[in-house]
């Protein structure tokens, strides 16, 4: 029996990742939107400085300091330098920080030179918000599949490299929080196409091999509708035969050709996806819950798309 995704919003820290172009940011925004609508105090954080999250929430550019974009829904953009400054303020005596001079100069070195520092400042800030219970749920628009394992594994990597010091004492609680499946989960967004399917399966394998962080769900985005049942498909074959088309033309005119060709395209597009859906399901083997979100045949993007997608997620979660 497969695990269920029904408890997704009961976790407190969700990292949403996926291959580029599958709608990762849009799904992260929608999960946050849904949780906020249901009354959870929610923070959505963008980690890649691409700025798309703001579009999906219908607001201007996001900053490190969270803003409430709608009731219960807060949004921020990660800025590792600001995160370091906050960390130093919280952990070091103030005069020492003042003598440091502009943090930017040192930061330039620290972030570029020491592997994993940017990652740990990102994960650390988010884990801190969770630990302090500043929010009921923190949703992270995390890096794409290629980069996310490095980020999630960074506390462990730093733990391996750094044997003593303040950072070392910080990574222990972070690791504990990240590896508690009741608290933290990864959501992998994908679409039923070849490379996204392959990358999803590989990512889950890597997450399981290289981290102890639970995969909460795989979200299959942009699932095309199956437009015909089996008996309907048989009737459609009759319609699109040359004799069938002649009959339709008699009543509807020659433009019916395009309409039938459109339906035929819809059938073929759907069919081209089925094999990938099957491979995904079989590859996951019931270990990871799947959520299916429909392709949106909508004019709108941005905040309208987010609200429609949030409804679709709500339906899948049984709300």
């Amino acid at each position: 029996m497969g695990r269920s995704a029904l408890g997704l919003l009961e976790r407190r820290l969700l990292f949403v990742t996926g291959k580029g172009g599958v709608g990762k940011t849009s799904v992260a925004a929608s999960i946050g939107w849904l949780a906020a609508t249901r009354g959870q105090r929610t923070l959505v954080c963008e980690v890649d400085a691409k700025g798309n999250l703001a579009d999906f929430l219908g607001v201007g550019p996001l900053q490190f300091d969270p803003v409430e974009v709608r009731p219960n829904l807060f949004a921020m953009a990660m800025d590792t330098e600001a995160s370091l400054r906050e960390y130093l303020r919280l952990n070091l005596r103030v005069p020492l920080v003042a003598r440091l001079g502009p943090v930017a100069r040192t930061f330039d070195f620290v972030a570029n030179a020491a592997p994993g520092v940017k990652e740990i400042l990102t994960v650390g800030k988010l884990a801190y918000e969770v630990r302090e219970r500043n929010y009921d749920l923190v949703v992270v628009d995390a890096p794409a599949t290629g980069h996310v394992v490095g980020q999630l594994a960074s506390p462990v990597a730093i733990n391996d490299l750094v044997k003593v010091g303040l950072v070392r004492s910080q990574t222990d609680w972070m690791i504990e929080l990240l590896t508690d499946a009741d608290v933290t989960g990864v959501v992998v967004v994908t679409i039923p196409e070849e490379m996204p399917t392959t990358e999803t399966l590989e990512l889950i394998e890597r997450l399981q091999a290289e981290t102890d962080i639970d995969v909460a769900s795989v979200v299959v985005n942009r699932v095309l509708p199956e437009i015909f049942s089996r008996p309907e498909a048989a009737v459609f074959e009759q319609l699109r035969s040359s004799a069938g088309i002649d009959v339709l033309r008699g009543e509807l005119g020659p433009a019916v050709d395009e309409v039938v060709a459109g339906a035929d395209l819809a059938v073929r597009l759907r069919r081209s996806r089925v094999a990938h859906l099957t491979r995904l399901r079989e590859g996951l083997g019931g270990d990871v819950p799947l959520l299916y979100l429909p392709f949106l045949f909508h004019r709108a993007h941005g905040v309208r798309a987010t609200s429609v997608l949030a409804d679709a997620i709500g339906d899948e979660l049984g709300y």
Binding site: V162, K163, V164, L166, R168
Partner: peptide
């Protein structure tokens, strides 16, 4: 040194 440790 306090943050990262000397060895690192």
């Amino acid at each position: 040194d306090r943050i990262l440790g000397t060895q690192f």
